[in-house]
Simulated assay, not measured.
Amino acid sequence: MTYSSGKTAVITGAGSGIGRALAQQLNREGCALFLSDIDAAGLADTVAGLERPDVPVRQQCVDVADKQAMDAWAAAIAAQQPAVDIVINNAGVGYSDRVDACDYANVQWLMGINFWGVVHGTMAFLPLLRRASQGHLVNISSIFGMIGVPTQSAYNASKFAVRGYTEALRLEMQGSNVHVCCVHPGGVGTNIARRSRGGGADVTEEDKAAMFAQHVRTTAESAAAQIIRAVEKRQPRLLIGNDARFINLLTRLFPVSYPRFMPGLGKIGQDLA
């Protein structure tokens, strides 16, 4: 029997990528699921592809940037059961542009999902986690929550914010029944680049996906498996991929001068648009 068997998990951004892979693996392990995504079609595809129809799953189209919608979703779940065991705030988007050319609306859009979505999910579901015998809260940051990358200022800001918010919460939850983990994926094969904003009007979704693919080091399935193991082991922090581990070491050794050792940072930022 796996650790997650018989437990209940809440996952945002479950319509594709890491969120879908998490749903698939947890379903195989016998974990009941409450899944959300703003993409109703993608979410339905995730649910349709789950292998075990005997394991309960509920889906809800939710915009994580909408606090009222997140609160209502949590309240609906609370009406069905007194607690949840695992909450993974996974939903995220990308936007690429130079600071002096950024569109303010796009920055707000990204921060609403990447940062406020994490805040909304944390605050809405923390009471349900505290009622579990052992609760696990997982917030997804990024290796871009460790380094600054040209054209990625908004994305950097959101992921640095998730890191700081989660680390502070982890300290607040010490001695409680809630384990808090901050996850920093490196290059993972998802649709985040294809669906990102910015990058130039002449750059197609296919162009973005092809450029992003050059930096993919880890599959979504492998990332999901590592996150689930981190939950089981109560890890406070998870670095996914050798690229994430390298960047973590580099920033610890050279917190200011790390760009000297990464001469291709500008190209990386453009490729991840």
Rank of each mutant, 00 (worst) to 15 (best):
R163C: 11
L129K: 15
R245E: 02
Q270W: 14
Y258G: 12
E51C: 01
A79H: 06
M70I: 14
C182N: 08
Y3I: 11
R28N: 07
M111N: 09
P82M: 11
L26R: 00
R245F: 09
K233F: 06
S196D: 07
K208T: 06
Y95L: 05
R20F: 07
G121Q: 00
K267V: 15
Q174E: 13
Y165F: 13
E206H: 14
G94L: 04
L249E: 15
E221S: 01
L238W: 02
I77A: 06
G117F: 03
F246S: 12
H184V: 06
R197A: 12
Q235G: 03
A14V: 10
F115K: 05
V231C: 14
L50M: 03
M173W: 09
G164Q: 04
F34S: 01
C61T: 15
V84K: 02
D85M: 06
I88T: 07
V84Y: 04
V118P: 14
R170A: 10
E205F: 10
K267S: 14
G17Y: 00
V64Q: 10
I11F: 02
I86V: 06
V64D: 13
K267P: 09
L169D: 06
A124Y: 05
G199C: 08
A72I: 12
G15K: 01
G135F: 00
E167M: 02
F115P: 03
Q81R: 13
D103P: 01
C61I: 11
M1F: 05
A83F: 10
V87F: 00
I18S: 12
P53K: 06
F246Y: 13
D207K: 11
G49K: 02
I227E: 03
E29D: 03
G112T: 12
M211S: 12
A132K: 15
Q226V: 07
L171E: 13
Q235L: 15
F246N: 07
C181I: 11
N156D: 14
A168R: 08
F160S: 00
T12C: 12
M111I: 11
R245N: 11
L249R: 05
S142R: 03
Q81W: 01
S158I: 02
V57S: 13
F212N: 12
W109I: 00
A21E: 00
F115D: 08
Y165P: 05
I227Y: 02
N156I: 15
Q68E: 11
A9Y: 08
A65R: 08
Q59G: 06
W109M: 02
R170K: 12
R52V: 13
S133V: 11
D207S: 09
E205M: 15
I113F: 05
G164I: 01
G135R: 10
R20V: 05
G199H: 09
V216Y: 07
N27V: 08
